[in-house]
Amino acid sequence: MADDKSKTDNRDRSQVAGDEEYEVGYLASKFGLSIPDVRQLIAKYGNHRDTLEREAKALGNR
């Protein structure tokens, strides 16, 4: 049976849910950072995924 396209949720994939451990853990493992490092990035730059990934990549390369 096909998916019902009229039923959508309100998730915004461009945002990182900083209060969700799995999202923070995913970013930490993806860029080789610690959980506190990722939480500091979220506090400093907000929760926009593109910005966080750019800054995490820069931090991971140091």
Rank of each mutant, 00 (worst) to 15 (best):
K5L: 01
M1C: 04
R49K: 12
A28T: 01
T51S: 01
A2H: 10
A2R: 15
P36L: 08
R62F: 04
P36G: 02
E23Q: 15
K7N: 01
R11Q: 11
D19E: 15
R39M: 13
N47I: 09
E53Y: 09
A43W: 05
G18Y: 03
E20Q: 13
A58F: 09
D37I: 10
D12Y: 02
A43M: 06
G60W: 07
F31V: 00
A43C: 04
A43T: 12
N61L: 05
I35V: 15
D9I: 03
K5Q: 00
K7A: 01
E20T: 10
R54Q: 12
K44W: 03
M1R: 06
T51D: 06
N10R: 10
S29W: 06
V16R: 10
R49N: 03
S29Y: 08
G25A: 05
A43P: 03
I42D: 06
E55H: 08
L52M: 05
S14H: 11
E21W: 10
G32F: 05
E55P: 03
K30W: 04
K57C: 03
R49A: 05
R11T: 12
I42N: 05
L27W: 12
Q40F: 06
G60N: 12
S29D: 15
V38R: 04
Y26C: 05
F31D: 00
D50A: 14
V38M: 08
Y45F: 14
G18N: 09
T8P: 00
V24T: 08
R39C: 10
A17Y: 05
I35K: 01
D50T: 12
I35R: 01
L33T: 09
Y22I: 06
I35D: 02
S29I: 05
G32P: 07
R49D: 07
A43N: 12
G32L: 02
Y22R: 10
E53T: 08
G25Q: 04
D4T: 01
S6P: 00
G18M: 10
E20Y: 12
S14N: 12
R54G: 01
A17K: 12
L41C: 07
E20I: 13
E53C: 08
E55Q: 14
A43E: 15
L59Q: 14
R11N: 10
L41W: 09
N47L: 04
L33K: 07
F31P: 02
A2Y: 06
D4C: 03
G18E: 09
L52R: 08
F31I: 00
V24S: 07
R13H: 14
Y26G: 03
N47V: 05
Q15K: 15
D9P: 00
K7H: 02
M1S: 04
L33D: 12
G60C: 09
A58P: 02
F31W: 06
D3C: 00
T51V: 15
M1F: 08
R54V: 02
Y26S: 11
L33C: 11
G18V: 06
E23D: 14
P36Y: 00
S6T: 10
N47A: 08
K5N: 00
D4N: 08
G18S: 09
A2S: 11
D19W: 15
K7Q: 01
S6C: 01
R13G: 13
I42R: 08
G46C: 11
L59R: 14
E20N: 15
A43I: 00
